[in-house]
Structures are given as C-alpha cells and as structure tokens.
C-alpha cells in the first residue's frame, strides 16, 4: 500500500474510485446489452400482421378449414351435434388441463365445452400442439378430435388435451363474429 497512513479496514479514496468505475462500467454494459437482446424480439412489421377475417358460410358440419394468422395455422371447425354432445359429456374433473385457455375469456375460465367456444357449432383453435408445436391432425385419435403425429398427444372434440405429453388444451385465439357467417381472428 502506498497510502500507508490509513488502517487496513478503512475505505480509501482509491477504493471509492474502483467501485465507482466498476459500477459505471457495469451500468454502461447493461445499457448496451439490452438493445442487443431486444433486437431478437418480434419486430414492428411482424407485430403489425395481427388480424384476419374469414367467411364461414362454405364450411359444412363435420368439416374443418385452416386459416393463417400471425404465421400460425388456426383451425375453424364446424362441429356436428354428436361431437358437441361428446365434448359436453366429459366431466371437468377428468381433464388434465382444467383451464379454458380461451383468449376471449378471463384466464381463470374453466375448460367446459361452453367456455371453449363462442357459438357451440364453431370451434376456433390455434392449430399448434401445446407440447412442441407440431400441427395436430383433425378428426383423428381416440377422442375424435385431434391427434398430434409427433409425440402422440390426443385432443377431444373441444380441442382439450386428453392423453399424451401436451400439458395444455389447444389455445382459443381472440376472435369475434362480425356477422352470423363471418369471423375476425385477432
């Protein structure tokens, strides 16, 4: 120590300079790091592609069509009365995921068939398996709903997970009916 007059445990002016310099450098680095991290988030042009409209009238009962929304497939399925009855017959307690996962309802809404749709006939789902993002196949699997070919997750006719590794029900995207035969997704 060149500053021989101070005792060992008393902070010196030099200690203060070290701490101040390191702190200023650390804050500067963090401020620079954030733009480098945040540039990877979805850009303004990606965020702008936020809604699509779709005409329901050509879709027959028992049919499903796929619409692209934000680069993701959205399933539009016109359910038969039998499929609706099957989905409603399932007791809530037997479901692996008991939340509705419906963007049009509060997060706490329960996964009853009523809370999975706006009109019971029309099942609107983000067509991405909640396991690892594959596209499930419709009208397949033991529950008549969806079967994911990748890892074998099975969904029922309300798009709720019933068996397999997927942790959550298929998501219901935000959508609204513009007229009885036209919906807007997003």
């Amino acid at each position: 120590m060149s500053v021989a007059t101070t005792t060992a445990d008393e902070p010196t002016r030099r200690d203060f300079i070290h701490i101040a310099a390191a702190s200023a450098g650390g804050v500067g680095l963090a401020a620079l790091a954030w733009p480098i991290i945040d540039q990877m988030n979805p850009s303004a042009s990606v965020l702008a592609l936020s809604s699509v409209e779709f005409d329901l009238s050509p879709v027959q009962a028992g049919q499903q069509v796929t619409v692209m929304w934000r680069g993701k497939p959205v399933f539009v399925r016109r359910r038969t009365p039998k499929e609706i009855a099957e989905a409603r017959a399932v007791p809530l307690a037997s479901l692996p995921d008991q939340l509705a996962r419906n963007a049009n309802l509060p997060d706490s809404a329960q996964a009853t068939d009523q809370d999975r749709t706006i009109k019971p006939e029309w099942l609107i789902l983000v067509g991405i398996c909640t396991h690892l993002g594959c596209i499930p196949l419709d009208h397949q699997g033991d529950f008549g709903g969806y079967l994911c070919p990748c890892h074998g997750s099975q969904y029922d006719t309300a798009g709720r997970i019933r068996r397999g590794p997927a942790p959550e029900n298929l998501y219901v995207p935000p959508y609204s009916f513009l007229s009885p035969t036209r919906i807007k997704i997003g």
Partner: peptide
C-alpha cells in the same frame, strides 16, 4: 418454462423466433 413461470416460456420462444412462429427472422 411456462409450466413453472407462466408466460415466461412463451416470451422466450417468441424472442428466439423473432415472431409468433418459426419464420424468416
């Protein structure tokens, strides 16, 4: 990660993708 920190996993995947699905970015 969503199963431990709800929402965090979704944010991380969107950050990795630069969008809402795997794409150009």
């Amino acid at each position: 990660i969503d199963q431990v920190l709800p929402g965090a996993g979704t944010h991380i995947t969107q950050w990795l993708w630069g969008g809402f699905a795997v794409g150009d970015p």
